[in-house]
Design a binder for these strands. Structure first.
Lengths: 330, 330
DNA sequence: GTGCTTATTGTTTGCGTAAACATGCTAGCG
DNA sequence: CGCTAGCATGTTTACGCAAACAATAAGCAC
């Protein structure tokens, strides 16, 4: 910076003013400074700037595994929105969704240069009262029950599961089986609870729930089970991958989808429309989740917002060709 | 820090020594300092530390779209390896893979607090001589031809495509059709060239190439075309998503896979084994790519490595159930 | 006890920047 | 003409930390 100032024949402070786009600089002076910056190849030092201003212009994203479709999309939306707001994203991956790992990530957080944090960790860990984030750091959480402690953004899991289940019931199916996500997952339990409640409200029998782990293979394994029973006509899988595996198991056993068994997924991943048959599923607006996360976080950072409460993003049922009326009703 | 020093009755420098884990501190003093840190809730300020040391302990990852499977896996591996090395990841998303966007990202780079950069932008942009990164910043590039200018890490695209094509030829197919990735993509052209070379080497006819855009839907559209021809018995799709769409088109037209048409993909995405039928595909070791990227970058940052050259990660053909000998050979 | 080394701790300094304050200059007014 | 308001620019300072150097205490050989 000093070199630039010398070359342009001004003080360092004026260079700083130009670099920050302040208005009270004479246009001709500004041009000279800009020219000098280009000649020297000046780049502001963000560390020094952060030290002086106390702002890092960066937000941390703590996430478990990048490999799930939804997290990926959410991260993408956050990153894009952040870039527009002049913030960069610092990824803080955790190897396992355990309390220990999470606490480790939080404590390391203090050493990271971030103004706020978005936590995308699918699990109930954050609900526990003995787990808390460093105070004073703005936080937004995706997918959690901790709305009383933190600011939370979430898809409307309950409405999505209700729509999926009701869609199948309205087609004439007597009941709907459910391949659920894993035990510890918040969204999995929300979808499961809503599925059960919808069946009960309709006076339908509630079958034993099948617990998977979000992977296509777990859907496949449960599909092999279901294929053995001839009383199964409709299945709601808690995500598209498990629906994919489920359909593979049905295909292998020559059970036609949707003629003999209807299948509904959840997520609407990009490939879902190219499954065989194209999958009826619940569309989640991950982009909206990501954008809203960032918006709420920036509000907190700027100090004009409360730090708690839940924001819910609606879902949409996308009807494709994996669902139909049951054979008995045809 | 001053507060901690006062509370512990030592100088700020001693607090610094404790914070950095230096050894030459008396154990009892260290205990006092640690106690004081905890009491006050001291967190080192990374901006100040970076300002003083000139190291940010962070590396930037420039990527176009997080939504492709491979990029995400690579990012995941990079993030995990970085965390182990004590580095954090700063994501620098670019909206479009155009030269302008990329240049913008590079120029913004100077303002980001990073010690090095990994570029994951599928395109030939970096090959162009008029595009260059800020000098003095260590760089590693994934998927590029610019090995003479930068350090490059890449999957062995050519070997993968060769194996896929040869596998189909060896099954007895007279030739192999190819659904390729988009024009501008480096990996797409590498796979396409290798497919063509393999056919020529085997004395097989080279069909017109079908150009897709990596999406399942583009595979579907080309699949509808191929379904109209009865001379097509084997297709190599340049990624699994397009293979998925392709197979959907074949299913819709009652063309059995693999009985009438064999299909091979590329990537081995997690769901590929649950496609119907389970997809024969070329496995890419994205984790190895990510880990190697980080390793090479850290070598550059530490100053004990050259800044150019290409490292290649091998692929493996995974045979599942979407390929078989052609009907005529049965 | 002297002179030396080693271990521990303290003092000074400056990294690059922007806020706060200070200066100088021009224009406008009675 | 003299005075003040307002604007462009310069000067000083401190952000929090760690490197370099300084100082003190302790141990040891002679």
């Amino acid at each position: 910076m000093a070199d630039v100032a010398a070359l342009a024949g001004v003080s360092a402070q004026t260079v700083s003013r130009v670099a920050n786009g302040l208005t009270n600089v004479d246009p001709s002076t500004k041009d000279r400074v800009v020219a000098a910056m280009n000649e020297i190849g000046y780049r502001p030092n963000s560390a020094a700037r952060a030290l002086k201003t106390g702002r890092f212009k960066s937000i941390g994203v703590i996430m478990f595994t990048l490999s799930t479709f939804g997290n990926m999309r959410t991260l993408d939306a956050i990153a894009t929105a952040a870039a527009q707001a002049g913030y960069s994203i610092t990824l803080i991956p955790i190897a396992l969704p355990t309390q220990v790992e999470l606490l480790g990530a939080f404590s390391r957080l203090g050493e990271h240069a971030v103004d706020g944090v978005i936590v995308i960790v699918e699990s109930h860990i954050l609900d526990r009262s003995d787990v808390s984030l460093p105070t004073g750091l703005p936080v937004v959480i995706v997918d959690s029950d901790a709305g009383d402690k933190y600011s939370v953004v979430d898809t409307d899991q309950a409405a999505g599961a209700r729509d999926a289940t009701r869609h199948l019931l309205e087609l004439g199916h007597r009941t709907v089986w459910h391949v659920s996500g894993p035990e510890g997952s918040f969204s999995a339990s929300r979808r499961r609870d809503s599925w059960e409640a919808t069946l009960l409200a309709a006076g339908a029998e509630v079958p034993r729930v099948l617990i998977g782990d979000w992977t296509a293979n777990s859907g496949y394994l449960h599909g092999l089970e279901l294929a053995k029973r001839d009383d199964v006509t409709a299945v709601f899988a808690a995500n598209d991958q498990m629906a994919l595996g489920l359909m593979r198991a049905l295909h292998e056993n020559d059970i036609a989808v949707p003629d003999r068994v209807s299948v509904v997924g959840f997520d609407d991943m990009q490939e879902a429309s190219s499954f065989w048959p194209p999958l009826t599923t619940v569309h989640q607006d991950f982009s909206a989740v990501g954008r809203l996360c960032l918006e709420k976080l920036l509000d907190q950072i700027d100090g004009n917002s409360t730090a708690r409460g839940v924001a819910v993003i609606p879902t949409t049922l996308i009807e494709r060709q994996s669902t139909a009326a049951p054979a008995s009703a045809t």
